[in-house]
Amino acid sequence: MQAYVGETFFKRLIVFYIPLFLFVAVMLFPFYWMFITSIKPDFELYNVRRSPFIVSQATLEHWFYLFKETMFARWAWNTLWIATASTAISLFAGILAGYSLSRLRFPGSATFGISIFITYLVPPTLLFIPLASVIANLRLLDSPWALILTYPTILVPFSAWLLMGYFKTIPRELEECARIDGATRLQAMTKIILPLGMPGILSAGIFSFTLSWNEFLYALVFISSPQQKTIPVGVVSELMKGDVFFWGSLMAGALLGSIPVAFVYSFFVENYVSGMTGAVKG
């Protein structure tokens, strides 16, 4: 980190505070807008002659609608469960693959590394049409497992890549000491590499969780019944409807759907940065 000693306040203002303030304002304005929209009663919301910045009779009706008339709580639960499970699967597969590729030498490891890398560049939008029929053949349509098993395909390549980089930064000597003391390879991995690799694992985990929480296309195509939907799909398909859409509830749902991940991040953002830093150094 740079200290910038001897900088005048005026210069600081121009090169630092003002730009930073603008960045923060632009980044946050849509959230402010979600909030203000969600507490406006309909007659204020759909009135072009009033200032949209002012709420004169704030109401929670849109928030209540969300819980009374839709299955929002259920969608939140589904999303949480699907994101957690697919993150767990991704981390499991990603740690093993990352360890294997960064530490063990075996014929074809380079090929595996490259093929994992290539798959991380095959986007879901390229796969969803045929994948739908694979999911159908596995009898997984409209089941959370359709998402729990497919999300890792988006997550594993990135996690494996990130962890591979991170594991490389852990000195080999530590592992070898443990091996000399009689630990098996697996023990060396679980006792040495896992604890030391925690920041990297955490980064990969946060990244995976976010991506699963946000995923839309697979959830849109593979899930149909209202009680199985995730938040993004539920909000879009069940609130963007009717004669005027339920804009108040849409924004309330958008805000509520954002909070859990935002919460996770606010705790782990430094970890995320250091995890990434580790991966980059490796």
Partner: peptide, 15 residues
């Protein structure tokens, strides 16, 4: 969104 749902349901044979 109806057509997309119909496509998914018919292709998947469930829905």
């Amino acid at each position: 969104d109806l057509p997309a749902r119909a496509t998914a349901a018919i292709e998947g044979g469930t829905g």
